[in-house]
Design a protein around this nucleic acid. Sequence first.
DNA 1: CGGAATGTTGATTATATTCAACTGTTGTGG
DNA 2: CCACAACAGTTGAATATAATCAACATTCCG
Lengths: 247, 247
Amino acid sequence: MHQATLLSRTNWNSGDRDARLVEGALARLDLFREVEPHNITEVALQSRTQQARRGTVVCNRGHRLPGVIVMAYGMAKAGLRRGDGEEKVLRFIGANETFGVASVLLDRPCPLDLVVVADSLITVLPARPLRRLLESDSRFARNVTANLAGSVLGMVTEFQANAQCSAIQRLASYLGTLARPVAAAQAGTVRLPASKTLIAARLGVTKETMSRLLRDLAGRGLISVAGREIGILDGAGLALIAGYAGD
Amino acid sequence: MHQATLLSRTNWNSGDRDARLVEGALARLDLFREVEPHNITEVALQSRTQQARRGTVVCNRGHRLPGVIVMAYGMAKAGLRRGDGEEKVLRFIGANETFGVASVLLDRPCPLDLVVVADSLITVLPARPLRRLLESDSRFARNVTANLAGSVLGMVTEFQANAQCSAIQRLASYLGTLARPVAAAQAGTVRLPASKTLIAARLGVTKETMSRLLRDLAGRGLISVAGREIGILDGAGLALIAGYAGD
DNA sequence: CGGAATGTTGATTATATTCAACTGTTGTGG
DNA sequence: CCACAACAGTTGAATATAATCAACATTCCG
C-alpha cells in the first residue's frame, strides 16, 4: 500500500559540506539555542541526514528510534494507527522541529508512528552524543528540560481540548491558531497545512465529520471553503465557538 | 460548596524536626534519587510543609504554583473543571509523587486544578533552589529530565487510551493495572483507590456510565462489585476487552 | 438521627462514527 | 494527450456510544 521505506543505513550523506548543512540545521533548533558552536559541531559530526519522500515511515510504534529526529524541512506526522485504516495524529512535525527527545533519552521504544507527509530532509541525532552533551553543557541541559517541559504543558493543553471540547470547538480553535499568525480576529484567508483528511485525524475526527463541520461553519457565514484555502470571514465568531459551548 | 482552602502563608511548619521530615520525604522521591544528601538538605530548608484536608484546593488552573508540589502522603487529583460540575481528572498524585515540575521550571501558570481528595501532607519546593540545584547537580538534572520525559511518554499513552479506546476498554485496562500489582491475570480482589465518581472522571466518563459499565462487566462474569471492592473473576477476559475491540 | 455525598437505574438525546455511494483531483504510463 | 488508477473529499442514512436529565437508593459521617 504505502511505499513504506524505513530509514536504512544506506544512502546517508556525511560529506564535509553536508556536515556544514547539518550544523546549520541544528543551530536553528530551540534545543541548541546558545549552545557553543563547537558542541553543535560535535553532535553534527555524528548525525546522519537523509532525504525522505512522502509516505516514508520513519519509525513504527513500539520500535526503537535511531535517535532524535530533526526535520530540516518538510513535514511529518506523529500518530497512532488502529488496525483498520483509522489513525489519530497527535502532532505534525514541521521545519526546525524535533521528535523523540523523551523516548531517546529514556531509551524507550517510540510510542508513536512517525510518517513523512511531504518530501523532507531528516537528520538523526544519535543518543550517545546527546547524552554526553547533556552532561557537559548546562545550557544544552537547560534547553532539553525546557523542551520536555514545553511538551508536557502542550500535551496537557491538547488533552484538555480533546476531552472537554466538541469537534466543532476544536476545529474553530484550530482555524483560529492558523489565522493568528496572519491577523488576529481579522478577515483573511489561511491555507491548511495538510490534507483535510490529515487535519481531521489531527483534530480527532473522521474526514466525513470534518467535511460536515466545515460546511456547518461555512453555512453560518463564519468561513468560506475553497479546497485548502479557508477564508476567515468572522474571526470573532470563530473564537466564540472555540471558547464557549457550541451554541 | 467545597471547603476551598487555598495554601496560605500561615500554618507552615518549619521547625528543626520538620526539616528532618521534609528531608526524608524528598529523599524518597525519584527526583532526588542519588542526589547528595547535603543538596537535599539545602532544598528541604527552603521548603514548606502543610497538612491539607480533603477538599483543599492547592492550585487553581491558570494560577502560578508556589513551587513543585510533593505529596508526602495522601492523595490529590489533577484535572480540569468545566463550568458545570463536570470534571476530567488527568491523574492522581499519590504518596511520594510530585506535581508541577514542568510549570514551575518554565515559570508558567499551572494548567490544571489540583485538589486534595484525601487528608494529605504536602510539601512545596520553591522554584529558586530547584533551579540552582538543576545547574549545579548533574545527577539532579538527569533526574529532572527523566521525570519530564516520563511524563511525556505517560501522557502519550494516556492520549492513546483516550482517543482510541472505548470507555469499557479503558475501564478494563484500568482494572487490569490495579490488579497487576496483586497477581497477573489471576483471580483476586482489588480496592478502588478513590470513589467511583472520581475514578469515572479519571477514565473520562460520567459516573452514570461508569456504573453501567461495571454492571456490564459483572454481568459477563468478569468481575464482581461490592462497593469499592472489585473482585477480578476473569483477568484474562478483562485483558481481552482492554486490548482488542469491545466485542 | 439527619443530611450530604455517593452510587444506581431508566428514558431520552446529542454527537460523531460507520457504511455506502458518488464526485472531484492528481499523477502516471501507454 | 488521454485513460486510468489512486487518492481526497462530499453527502446521506443508519447506527453506536456515551452524555444528560430525572428519580431513587445507599453509604458515610457528624
